[in-house]
Design a protein around this nucleic acid. Structure first.
Lengths: 136, 136
DNA sequence: TCTTGAAGCTCTAGGGACTAGAGGGAATAT
DNA sequence: ATATTCCCTCTAGTCCCTAGAGCTTCAAGA
């Protein structure tokens, strides 16, 4: 049986975060000591690893709850969630890459070498959305 | 002079969000009507464009506040902020791409075609952090 | 056995960037 | 004059934690 601190050390999840997960119903302490302290079994440890891993992958807690409560022989559903999330991540990458390109454009345009008294073109670019590739 | 709704339509920033920005001290209505409604000038419109653009670029409101209050001839500082943010975005892209690779690995390993009664390998992979490239 | 210090407990509040809803008043078009 | 649309403030909720106050329990050494 592990204490909450032990669990924290073994998973890298902070103590208050574990308590928060408990409050959200994602994990439960198997037992409490006479003095009301949480004790977790190996199962709890594994479950917390599962949660942690899901979070590292960027899954919202709600999705993790669904996965954790899933029938482990239901291939289709697990697959569907993984693929949906993959699409989401690819979308985020694409958007960030557009931002990257725009920031490079903004930043290289202002070498800082223009005459004194000029408005910095970084600042100008931030104000001028029309030069931006994005469609809003 | 624009009403808040007019401003919203012209910038794509939702009305409650504009009020929120005002509350946070990022923008101020130039005037109020006799009936206490906000009226914004062209300057307000430009400022909101600036905020919007910064947010689209992923800058936190605090950074936008700094940029907006900056000396417009201070090239070095504008440059520094843009570059710092660029580094941040590149970091985020790198992390997301690692996630993408791992999700692809997880998802392709489970074709859903294994025998009935097997544990779905998507689920197994989520629980097994050791197979993951990331260092935690 | 006693004592100390680390670790645990609950509860509450904060953060960032909004979003939604209630319950009203103001502007505008007919 | 009225109907409709807009606007007002205020409060609370979202997500995923994080931090602090104030107190209790545990484990190890003297």
């Amino acid at each position: 049986m592990f204490s909450i601190g032990e669990l924290s050390r073994r998973t890298g999840v902070k103590v208050p975060t574990i308590r928060y997960y408990e409050q959200m119903g994602l994990i439960a302490a198997e037992a409490r000591t006479a003095g009301n302290q949480r004790r977790f079994s190996k199962q709890g440890l594994e479950r917390l690893h599962f949660i942690r891993h899901g979070r590292d992958l960027g899954l919202p807690l709600e999705t993790i709850r669904v996965l954790a409560g899933m029938d482990p022989t239901d291939h289709a559903e697990g697959h569907r969630i993984a693929n949906a999330h993959l699409a989401d991540i690819r979308d985020r990458i694409a958007r960030l890459m557009r931002l990257e390109a725009e920031l490079v454009r903004i930043s290289t345009r202002c070498s800082g070498g223009t005459a004194d008294g000029d408005t910095c073109s970084v600042l100008a670019a931030f104000g001028d959305h029309d030069q931006c590739d994005e469609d809003h």
